[in-house]
Amino acid sequence: MALAGLGLLLFLLPLAGLVVRAPWGQVGQELLAPQTATALGLSIFCSVTATAIALVLGIPLALVLSRTTGTLRSVLRALTTLPMVLPPVVGGVALLLAFGRRGLIGAPLYQLFGVQIPFTTTAAVIAETFVAMPFLVIAIEGGLRSLDQRYEEAARALGANSWKVFARVTLPLLRPAIFSGAVLCWARALGEFGATITFAGNLPGRTQTVPLAVYIALESKPEAAIVLSLVLLAVSLAILIGLRDRWLGEP
């Protein structure tokens, strides 16, 4: 109990610090500042898009992971979880080396089509997907592994082909795992900083998400940084609570 309280305190104290130090007189003014709305809008767009991409790519990846065994599985799993342990800045550099103008894929893209990914909103989305998708994959893989496989066997015995089994049985049964994975993924994407600043740069309206705006503001206007942080916190809390009621019924 005491340890649990201590753990909770570790979360609550920094939050309390933000709230106590917030320049409440300036909150309205900072909120109405166009840069705030721009950064917040961009943050929500990028994090939601990243989560959507992670769902499309991550669910099949989790399926493959849950169905492999032995060395292959260890290798695949390590690869998938790599972005979780990699410092995000290193992830950003790695993304540059892959998608940058001189990168593995970026170079031909640039030379053939004149497309440059870094410094674009696409880059911000890629950076967030790269960093956040493992959370989704791990959650769904866990869900798949704990899924009673007899549900799928029962469906097959009733004549359902692989696609019908997946769509009508596996996917619905995985809903809680998919939901919690998507929420984790989205939250991680929303807070993403290191990979984004390294790979996508920092330009208001294009790649400057709220965490980047907070960091920049910290250099010049610490009060604005605190307000922005509180806004990010409030928005994520509101969305998390709202989604919970909507998707999981009663908590």
């Binding site: 009673d148 007899r150 549900y151 066997e153 029962a154 469906a155 097959r156 015995a157 009733l158 004549g159 359902a160 082909n161 089994v165 009508r168 049985v169 619905p172 049964l173 809903r175």
Partner: peptide, 28 residues
């Protein structure tokens, strides 16, 4: 399995928990 037209009834029924009884029976 899905092409055998073999009916398999499990020990603890294994009804699909997210479907109604009607949807369960109509599944196949």
């Amino acid at each position: 399995t899905e092409e055998r037209q073999v009916g398999l009834v499990f020990q603890d029924h294994v009804l699909f928990p997210h479907m109604t009884v009607l949807q369960n029976v109509a599944f196949g």
